[in-house]
């Protein structure tokens, strides 16, 4: 449906298409999924056909169906062969897709599952954080990217169906997942392990750029932010206590509990992949995020009047 497609474009490819791979780390998974689906359908058809024969078939056919030969072939040999083949395929695929260590020169990103959003840190070769972001991952097309997945609280699961299979994010453990996008675009993701409260509203977006566009994006993120003219919105941000949880580089705001807002205005989505990001949704989120995403850790800011809310939304929307 075109309407859904357009909505997906706005919400960073969310909800994600699960059987439409866009890279070499999801294609084999999709192939296996199709094999299971089609194979399962064929087996079901055979069983139903056998059932029909058992109920209404000619006596000679029914005798044959109940004979030792049928049981040996259909009941033992066939399942053993098929299930063993699937097991081998599955284990081989898991081993083949598993990432064990960074390759030389490979881009590394640490993604930490939080209740209920994603902390994103781009690492340099030595593992130091060079760019901080949230709920969105930017990658160049055609290159592998190694994701180091962990969790700050409970078990989450990182799942961007068009780019890779699921990978659990476990507190105290670092799981590696390699992804690669073969086409530019935005690919939606979703937490795939129930993590409490608004788990269903914990979305994610991977934005795949052409290499030139990615270099531009990276350079813009690495560039020091020019000292901004203090605006009414920025004053409100500091005065309202936002800085206790959020960081905005170049200001006094250095909170670490919530998503980094240094470039919040350029994010595709708001509230972790659930809303389009604009002044309107920013204002709505600040004033009453609890109605939008019940249980999320940001309190409602109902003490702001209309002008203050507008100024704050303006300021944040301008943090490109």
């Amino acid at each position: 449906m075109p309407t859904e497609t357009q909505l997906k474009a706005v919400l960073g490819g969310w909800p994600p298409a699960v059987l439409n791979p866009a890279g070499p780390y999801s294609e084999p998974v999709t192939l296996l999924a199709w094999a299971l689906l089609i194979g399962g359908t064929v087996v079901l058809a055979i069983v139903l056909a056998a059932l029909a024969v058992a109920l209404w078939g000619a006596p000679s056919l029914r005798r044959r169906l109940g004979g030792d030969r049928a049981i040996w072939i259909g009941g033992i040999a066939f399942p053993v062969v098929v299930l063993t083949a699937l097991l081998v395929w599955g284990l081989w695929l898991t081993g083949d897709l598993a990432a064990k260590a960074p390759r030389p020169g490979e881009m590394r990103v640490r993604i930490t599952g939080e209740m209920w959003w994603w902390r994103v840190a781009y690492l340099d070769e030595s593992g130091r954080t060079v760019i901080r972001d949230a709920n969105e991952l930017h990658v160049p097309v055609g290159s592998t990217v190694l994701l180091e997945l962990d969790s700050a609280d409970v078990i989450h699961s990182f799942w961007v169906p068009r780019l890779a299979g699921k990978m659990n994010m476990i507190p105290g453990r670092r799981n590696l997942l390699r992804i690669q996008a073969d086409q530019p675009g935005t690919f939606g993701g979703q937490c795939a392990e129930y993590c409490g409260g608004p788990h269903a509203l914990m979305g994610f977006a991977v934005v795949a750029h052409t290499p030139e566009s990615f270099d531009r994006w990276r350079a813009s993120r690495l560039a020091a932010r020019p000292a901004s003219v203090t605006s009414r919105g920025q004053e409100l941000f500091m005065a309202s206590g936002c800085a206790a949880c959020h960081t905005i580089a170049g200001t006094q705001a250095a909170g670490l509990a919530g998503p980094d807002l240094t470039h919040v205005g350029s994010r595709r989505t708001l509230g972790a992949g659930i809303l389009p990001n604009n002044r309107g949704t920013l204002a709505g989120w600040i004033a009453d995020s609890q109605t939008i995403k019940p249980g999320n850790r940001m309190p409602n800011y109902k003490q702001l009047d209309a002008r203050e809310l507008n100024a704050l939304a303006d300021y944040l929307a301008g943090l490109k």
């Binding site: 357009q6 809303l275 389009p276 309107g280 949704t281 004033a287 109605t291 939008i292």
Partner: peptide, 17 residues
Amino acid sequence: QLGCGACHKIPGIWPEG
């Protein structure tokens, strides 16, 4: 697409702000 639902309850639009 614009996320009007962030603040307003509108039948057929999510969320119901």
